[in-house]
Amino acid sequence: MEEVTIIGSGRTGRGMIGELFDTDGRYHLNFADIDRQLVNLLRKKGKYSVHLRDLIGGEDKIREIDDFSVYDIHQDRIEYIDKLANSRFVITSLFPDAFDSAINDIVESIKLRYKLHKENLVNIILSANYVGLMEYFVPRIKKRLTDKELEYLDNYIAILGSNANRKVTYLKDKNDLTLDGDNKYVLKVNRGFKLPNDYKLPSFIVEVDDIERVMIEKIWSENLQHIGFAFLGNYKGYNVINEAVNDPWVVKKIDAAWEEARSAMKKVYDIPIPNAKQRKTVLDKFASPFFKDKLHRIGRAEKRKLKKNDRLLGPAYLCLNNGLPADNILKLVAYGFCYNDPFDRDSQEVLSFVKQNGIKEAVKKYCGLNLTLKNDRVVLDKVVNEYNKLRK
Rank of each mutant, 00 (worst) to 15 (best):
I6E: 04
G8E: 04
G15M: 05
M16N: 02
E19Y: 11
D22Q: 08
D24T: 11
G25A: 06
R26Q: 11
Y27K: 05
A32S: 15
A32Q: 10
D35F: 01
R36N: 14
V39L: 07
N40P: 01
K44C: 03
K44A: 14
V50D: 08
L55W: 11
I56C: 03
I65G: 06
D67P: 01
V70H: 11
V70L: 12
Y71H: 13
I73A: 15
Q75K: 15
R77E: 15
E79I: 00
R88C: 02
P96K: 00
D97E: 04
D97N: 07
I106V: 04
K111F: 13
K111I: 08
L126I: 10
S127Y: 07
V131S: 03
G132S: 06
L133N: 04
F137E: 04
F137A: 02
P139T: 12
P139A: 09
K142M: 14
K148V: 09
K148M: 13
Y152N: 09
Y152W: 14
L153I: 12
A158V: 13
L160E: 13
R166Y: 12
L171S: 10
K172G: 00
D176F: 10
G181M: 07
D182R: 11
D182Q: 07
N183I: 05
Y185T: 06
V189C: 01
N190V: 05
F193E: 09
V206T: 14
D210Q: 09
I211G: 00
E212N: 14
R213T: 10
V214W: 11
E217K: 08
K218S: 02
S221G: 12
E222N: 12
L224N: 04
H226A: 13
K236D: 00
G237V: 09
N239M: 05
I241R: 04
N242T: 11
A244I: 08
W249R: 11
A257G: 10
W258N: 14
E259L: 06
E260V: 01
R262H: 13
S263R: 14
A264Q: 07
A264T: 12
A264S: 13
K266P: 00
V268H: 00
I271H: 01
I271S: 02
I271F: 02
P272Y: 02
I273G: 01
P274W: 04
N275R: 11
L283I: 14
F290I: 07
K292F: 00
D293L: 04
K294D: 11
K294R: 15
G299T: 12
A301Y: 13
R304M: 09
K305W: 06
D310L: 03
P315G: 10
G323C: 13
N328L: 00
L332D: 08
V333E: 12
V333L: 07
V333D: 09
C338D: 00
Y339P: 00
N340R: 05
F343L: 08
L351A: 09
N357K: 14
G358W: 12
G358H: 05
G358C: 08
I359F: 00
K365L: 10
C367L: 01
C367I: 02
L369T: 06
L369H: 07
K374S: 13
N375F: 10
R377P: 03
V378W: 10
V378E: 13
L380R: 09
Y387K: 01
Y387L: 03
K392F: 05
K392M: 12
